[in-house]
């Protein structure tokens, strides 16, 4: 199967190409400015995962997997979780108790991007983690499908990829 035939129609593909960058930018903004405006790591990460979901829906699943394969996604997931944990443990060593904000913010720094100590770092870590893991869940759910076998019973199948079909 040729690449042009996969996914949805040309209109959807062109609009997706225009819009994907802006959605990604919005997700990154939500993550980075999470301590100043509404948002934070979790919604921003989900928006970033939504970019890849949109690419999967309109171009087929090979295109986003070429940009972010599942190994890299699971590594990013673990990396985000570890950074978040590391910030907590660093609070124990550099300050007094676990998960303490060990970078002090001075009053002239209020309402600036570089403020709030460890909170932006935690937001970035959570954004990475949530984005990678939700993208992985979507890819996993998109390649498996449930079919009904007989009366009331169901079976889970993995959709065949193009590579296998050629064999």
């Amino acid at each position: 199967m040729k690449e042009e035939e996969k996914g949805l129609s040309t209109i959807v593909k062109v609009v997706t190409r225009w819009i994907v960058g802006f959605i990604l930018l919005f997700g990154i903004y939500i993550v980075i400015f999470g301590h100043l405006t509404p948002g934070g790591g979790f919604p921003g990460g989900v928006i970033i995962a939504g970019v890849f979901v949109l690419l999967t829906l309109s171009f087929g699943r090979e295109v986003p997997l070429r940009k972010l394969n599942s190994t890299l996604a699971s590594e990013l997931d673990s990396f985000g979780a570890l950074v978040f944990l590391l910030v907590g443990i660093l609070g124990l060593y550099l300050a007094t108790y676990f998960a303490q904000n060990f970078i002090t913010t001075f009053p002239q720094q209020y309402f600036r991007p570089f403020s709030a100590g460890v909170i932006p770092i935690c937001n970035l870590a959570i954004g990475l983690k949530v984005g990678a893991s939700i993208f992985m869940v979507f890819i996993i759910l998109a390649v498996t499908r449930v079919i009904s076998v007989g009366e009331g019973r169901m079976k889970m199948l993995r959709k065949r990829t193009g590579r296998r079909r050629r064999k």
Binding site: G34, G40, T105, Y110, F111, A116, I119
Partner: peptide
């Protein structure tokens, strides 16, 4: 905490253990 967004300051500073 220095965070202008109170929700984030609760989530990631006062209650970071929950997060």
């Amino acid at each position: 905490t220095g965070a202008a967004n109170i929700t984030t300051s609760v989530l990631l500073d006062f209650r970071m253990y929950d997060t």
